[in-house]
Simulated scan of single mutants.
Amino acid sequence: MKITNEYNLPQPIMAAVMREHTYTPKQYSVTALLKGTCQTILERRHDNEIEQDVSEMIWLIFGTAVHGVLEQSQETENQLKENKIVVELTNGYKLSGIFDLYDDKTGTVTDYKTASVNKVLFNDWDDYRKQTLIYCWMLRKIGFHAHRGEIVAMLKDHSKTKALQGGDYPQHPVYPINWEFTEEEFNQIDEWIHDRFEELSDCEQMTDDDLPACTPEERWHKEDTYAVMKEGRKSAVRVFKTHGDAQAYIDSKMLDNKHSIVKREGTDNRCENYCNVNKWCPYYKSKHAA
Score class of each variant (00 low, 15 high):
E217A: 13
Q11M: 12
V277G: 01
F62R: 06
A65R: 06
M14G: 09
P212F: 11
C38P: 01
I142E: 02
I193F: 00
P25N: 12
K119D: 13
W179T: 07
P176N: 10
H172N: 13
Y128T: 06
K26T: 08
G92W: 08
K258H: 15
P176S: 14
E191Y: 04
E49R: 14
M229I: 14
W280M: 05
T207H: 13
V86C: 11
M229S: 07
D256Q: 09
K113W: 04
D251W: 03
T76S: 14
E56Q: 14
Q52D: 09
K258A: 05
M57S: 11
D104L: 06
F186N: 04
H158S: 02
L255S: 00
K230L: 10
E56T: 03
T31P: 05
L255H: 01
A213Q: 11
K222M: 11
K94A: 08
E198T: 15
Y28M: 11
S260Y: 13
E199V: 13
K258W: 07
E231P: 05
R129Q: 12
A163G: 10
P216S: 08
E43T: 05
Y7M: 09
G166V: 14
N83W: 11
N8H: 12
L89W: 06
C214P: 03
Y175Q: 08
K258G: 15
A236S: 15
R129M: 08
Q52Y: 05
M229T: 04
D103G: 01
D202Y: 13
P12C: 13
E20A: 05
L133T: 02
D103A: 09
N276E: 14
V69R: 04
W192T: 07
H67E: 08
S29F: 02
Q205P: 04
K26R: 15
V117D: 03
E82V: 07
D47W: 14
A246M: 09
T114V: 14
L9G: 03
P216K: 10
E150H: 12
H194E: 11
T207V: 06
T161I: 12
P282C: 05
S116P: 07
L33P: 08
N278R: 15
Q247Y: 09
